[in-house]
Amino acid sequence: MRVFAPLLALGLMASAAHAQCGGPFPAFVKGLKSEAVAAGHKQATVDAFFSGVQQDPKVLKADRAQGVFQKPFIEFSRRLISKQRLDKGRAMAKKYDATFKRIERDYGVSRGVLLAFWAFETDFGGFQGDFNTLNALTTLAHDCRRPELFRPQIFAALTLYEHGDFDPARTTGAWAGEIGMVQMLPRDILINGVDGDGDGHVRLKTSAPDALMSGAKMLSHLGWRAGEPWLQEVTVPADLDWSLTGPGQNLTVADWAKRGVRPREGKLAQGGLPASIILPQGRKGPAFIAYPNFNVYFEWNQSFTYVLTAAYFANRLEGSAIYDAGTPEPGLDGPQMKRLQQKLAARGYDVGKIDGILGAGTRAAVQAEQKRLGLPADAWPTMALLNRL
């Protein structure tokens, strides 16, 4: 499930006095109402908006249980990418060809990118979530894990309600408050919502043109570079300096080419672009070159495995071949990964939460320890590394 990066300030400004969370839920809602009125919303509107809000324990349960991201890339991508999704994606590309042409002209976002998000988030609008959105946002704002993310979304939903584009009793979506076919939070809708079908409203639940145009504008707002690639499968030489690989470690495309990196299909991007080599399951597994637009994916979702799968699926929807899975060394299961994270944390590395997920912090720590121990520094944790530690 998506976890958004911090968004632009809009509407009500959060102050220290309004940063509270926790406490009795009715008192928390009372505080939200007072804050909304102080920001200029009419009392009657605020009362109507919050009249039926309830705490939803199912939202908190979902927030604590995102185990799907523990799966390695090959397993995860094969689970999410099916022939049915490919066929439907290509059919949707034809059905909404005029909309995609507008997107490509106005925002420079290739259709495969949006089709992949549309597929993974809601199966092309088929399942958009059945959690009451206001309840979900208020529950998560009341919870003290990430109130700074979810509290502003409540007031954004209130503004949408005033515009006639949100129903506090009937608007539903994902457990984390995202709405519509490409799953956008209320504040994103206010900032990036586009009336793609010309009916005077931004309806991301029922209008594919609205959803796709809004998603494209949001990607552009997050830094998408018009007309540039995002990801490409490559082959890498066996003697590559593996310590140079990984997200955030950039050389120019020309430098990678000098080191023997070759595209499996087509040509590499122009030589001056910065790029990184991604080895999701180490030097013996699939290999990709990631261009600047790949980094924008992490503004949409912060899971490395999800991001890489979505970026690869966008390529597949535009005709690329299935990646070469190679023969990666066996990875670690959940308990083994937690043991590894504990050992790395004990050595002073910031691996974040000990959760068994191979995130960016754990990958960086693994690569550093591999280099220290004289192992191939490809950031893929194995039993050999765990035993050495």
Rank of each mutant, 00 (worst) to 15 (best):
L204C: 07
K205T: 14
T206Y: 08
T206W: 10
A208K: 02
P209D: 09
D210S: 09
D210G: 05
L212G: 00
A216W: 00
K217H: 12
L219G: 00
S220M: 07
S220H: 14
L222W: 08
R225G: 00
G227K: 06
W230P: 00
W230M: 08
L231D: 01
V234Y: 06
L240A: 05
L240Y: 04
W242S: 00
L244A: 13
L244I: 02
G248A: 11
G248S: 09
T252S: 15
V253E: 06
A254M: 08
W256Y: 08
W256V: 03
W256K: 05
P263G: 03
E265S: 14
G271S: 05
L273A: 13
P274T: 08
S276D: 10
I277W: 04
L279V: 12
G282E: 04
G282F: 01
K284E: 12
A287I: 06
F288G: 01
I289P: 02
I289K: 05
A290S: 12
A290N: 08
A290F: 12
F294M: 14
F294W: 08
N295A: 15
N295F: 11
V296K: 03
Y297I: 04
Y297W: 13
Y297H: 10
F298W: 09
E299S: 15
Q302H: 15
F304R: 11
T305Y: 05
Y306G: 02
T309V: 13
T309W: 04
A310T: 14
N315I: 07
G319T: 07
G319A: 06
A321G: 13
I322G: 11
Y323I: 10
A325Y: 09
G326I: 07
G326N: 10
G326V: 09
T327R: 14
T327Y: 06
P330I: 07
G331S: 07
L332R: 02
D333I: 07
Q336V: 03
Q336N: 09
M337H: 06
K338Q: 14
R339A: 14
L340W: 01
Q341F: 10
Q342A: 14
A345T: 14
Y349A: 10
